[in-house]
């Protein structure tokens, strides 16, 4: 158990640093950045209580906000993602989730991509809606959501595949 906790703490710190030091400065085509720190929320153990997940997601989002001077937008999006994670898990993994037997390290790649995509769209839409905070620029919100989602999904799936042990 201690070993698992240590893994998650290290993952938390590493993803936070990668996000604020590298991913926030990519600015592909001027404004497209991947937000890979949500990998932490996606890979949080399923059997653990949801309260812990909510609190840890809030802390992670708040730290990203602190580093990027963005008020509370990352915290809000992360908390929303953490709260709705069971629904997304159920819709992308179906039976596996109901039997509580998902192992992210050896799931079907199609299911994994569905899961990451759904979660990323939700997270990014809330993030950009709150960041721009103006209904009249809804096109800009959707545009940023679309492009950043593509970028984030590619990078996140690669991270999950590369760093998962014994994938066939």
């Amino acid at each position: 158990m201690n070993n698992v906790a240590a893994t998650h703490i290290i993952r938390f710190i590493l993803l936070l640093l990668v996000q604020v030091l590298i991913c926030n400065n990519i600015n592909f085509l001027g404004y497209v950045n991947p937000y890979v720190y949500i990998v932490f929320i996606l890979l949080f153990p399923i059997r653990d209580t949801r309260l812990t997940l909510l609190l840890v997601s809030f802390l992670l989002g708040m730290l990203v906000d602190m580093f990027s001077d963005s008020g509370g937008v990352h915290a809000a999006a992360s908390v929303a993602l953490a709260y709705s994670r069971p629904v997304i898990l159920k819709s992308s993994f179906g039976m596996l989730y109901e039997h509580q037997s998902i192992k992210f390290s050896n799931t079907d790649i199609g299911n994994l991509i569905t899961y990451v995509t759904l979660a990323t769209i939700l997270h990014h839409f809330i993030l950009f809606a709150l960041e721009i905070f103006n209904i009249s620029s809804v096109i800009l919100i959707l545009k940023k959501t679309l492009f950043s989602t593509i970028f984030t999904v590619i990078v996140s799936v690669l991270i999950i595949i590369l760093f998962s042990r014994n994938r066939k």
């Binding site: 309260l51 609190l55 708040m62 008020g71 509370g72 937008v73 709260y83 709150l130 905070f133």
Partner: peptide, 22 residues
């Protein structure tokens, strides 16, 4: 409803911070 209430609390705090920053 502890999960939902905690969600509301945390989401409310982040929204307040967002609105304040705007």
């Amino acid at each position: 409803n502890k999960t939902f209430l905690l969600f509301l609390l945390l989401f409310g705090i982040s929204l307040a911070l967002t609105i304040q920053s705007h």
